[in-house]
């Protein structure tokens, strides 16, 4: 079972390749706000959730796909870890 750091690393890689092509990976730190800054809009959030569900074989509810759970890499890792 992957730990939170591994989840963070994998998610960071996914976000960089899908939504932030060409951006400096070092700038995507664990506290960068993804939803409130507009990097993850509703469509991108949906894509990320589908990726997390498929990758970790978990189910994320609609009400969980919000700023509380997906705003930073840390938040995402915590949500995924809580479902493993």
């Amino acid at each position: 079972m992957p730990d939170q750091n591994a989840i963070m690393a994998a998610t960071k890689s996914f976000i960089l390749s899908e939504f932030l092509e060409g951006e400096d990976p070092d700038e995507l730190t664990e506290d960068v706000e993804l939803i409130s800054s507009g990097i993850l809009d509703s469509l991108a959030t949906l894509k990320l959730v589908t990726h997390l569900e498929n990758t970790y074989d978990i189910k994320i509810e609609a009400h969980e796909a919000d700023e509380d759970n997906l705003n930073t890499l840390v938040d995402i890792a915590k949500l995924v870890a809580s479902k493993l």
Partner: peptide, 25 residues
């Protein structure tokens, strides 16, 4: 709108491809 309408609808269609969920939502 996203919380109450878009996300529940788009979530229910998220296995239907990249475009349909966003359009219907």
């Amino acid at each position: 709108m996203v919380k109450i309408f878009y996300t529940p609808v788009a979530f229910s269609l998220r296995t239907k491809g990249d475009i349909l969920p966003g359009v219907v939502g």
